[in-house]
Nucleic acid binder design. Structure first.
Length: 316
DNA sequence: ATCCAGGCTCCTG
DNA sequence: CAGGAGCATGGA
């Protein structure tokens, strides 16, 4: 059975090799330790669960109509994907899950041009040496990415994670494995059906509640989708997203960076970015927006990656 | 206590 | 059209 399945999978999923109940992909230039640190940075995260001892992350994802739990070990030279709740994953599920991981960790991107650029940049030079192999971790679902940017506006990450936890555990779906609950972000359809009061009960502000429901309606009615955005230029993406009530330049660029994966998206107004620059430059005050824009000229093409690497410095 | 958190809209003058 | 109030909550 396994031999047959092995032949079946090979060739279908190029980079991934099937061995027994596991799928393995050899990796280079992936900084697993820092990826796991980023994934595990907040205790209130409910959409995945990191286990630093076995260097793995567990996450429930939706494949077609099915909810599938995946376990991904991130080792030095390879990724190991397995399905804790499935004895015989179908080819369709294996293909979708490996595709998910490839995109989640931006595995197809060659970071060498970014390293070259950073090596010539006084601000990024040491940061990029320190975290080399860190890749932008995606928020794959457009609705989740937009929601997260709305929840993150103005307030601290702690409060934002608290809002997300309440939203997800109140209106999302979950699967249970070994007595642990793994959550999926609620669907746009579900959130579009809510009223403002129901979100206010979860400590959302009036505004945040209105924004979230509005975005949910746009996605649920397919007036907005990831496919239409992905074919746009960076500027067009920003224009389209900032036309949505509740989505300003910061949120738009956050979504473009984390979900649409444009490597040059740049959340200029981001407080985390400001604090990271203050820290890296060892200054007593946060830099001005004008200064940051000036420095960022040298990061052109890779400003999203520059931002993600700078964020990483805040966790230490 | 006061200020600041991975901002945005809307209302003033 | 620039500038500022208001949002709601938790941690320093």
């Amino acid at each position: 059975m396994n031999v047959l399945m092995g032949f079946y999978f090979i060739g279908v999923i190029e980079m991934w090799k099937h061995k027994g109940i596991e799928f393995r992909r050899e990796i280079q230039d992936v900084n697993g330790a820092d990826m796991l640190a980023y994934l595990g940075r907040n205790q209130k995260e409910v959409l995945h669960r990191v286990n630093l001892e076995n260097k793995s992350v567990m996450k429930a994802i939706r494949i077609q109509k099915e909810v599938v739990l995946i376990k991904l070990a991130i080792l030095d030279k390879e990724l190991i994907l397995s399905f804790p709740q499935l004895i015989h994953p179908t080819m369709q599920i294996a293909k979708a899950a490996t595709d998910f991981v490839d995109e989640w960790f931006d595995l197809s991107r060659d970071l060498q041009p970014f390293y070259d650029l950073a090596h010539r940049d006084e601000i990024l030079k040491e940061v990029v040496l320190a975290y080399k192999g860190l890749r932008i971790i995606a928020v794959e679902e457009l609705f989740e990415a937009l929601s997260w940017s709305i929840m993150g506006q103005q307030i601290s990450l702690q409060v934002a994670y608290g809002l997300k936890q309440k939203l997800v555990t109140t209106f999302g779906e979950s699967v249970v494995h070994d007595d642990i609950e793994y959550w999926l972000f609620p669907s746009a359809e579900k959130v579009a059906s809510l009223n403002v009061e129901e979100l206010r009960n979860l400590s959302f502000t009036q505004r945040k509640a209105e924004y979230l429901i509005g975005v949910a309606e746009l996605i649920a009615t397919d007036q907005l989708n990831k496919e239409q955005l992905l074919v746009m230029s960076l500027g067009e993406m920003e224009t389209r997203l900032t036309a949505i009530r509740g989505i300003g330049k910061w949120s738009a660029n956050y979504v473009i960076m984390r979900c649409l994966r444009h490597p040059d998206a740049f959340p200029l107004a981001d407080v985390g970015l400001h604090n990271a620059l203050k820290k890296v430059l060892n200054q007593s005050e946060k830099p001005s927006l004008a200064e940051i824009e000036e420095w960022a000229k040298n990061w052109s093409g890779w400003r999203a990656y520059a931002t993600f690497y700078l964020w990483r410095t805040l966790q230490e």
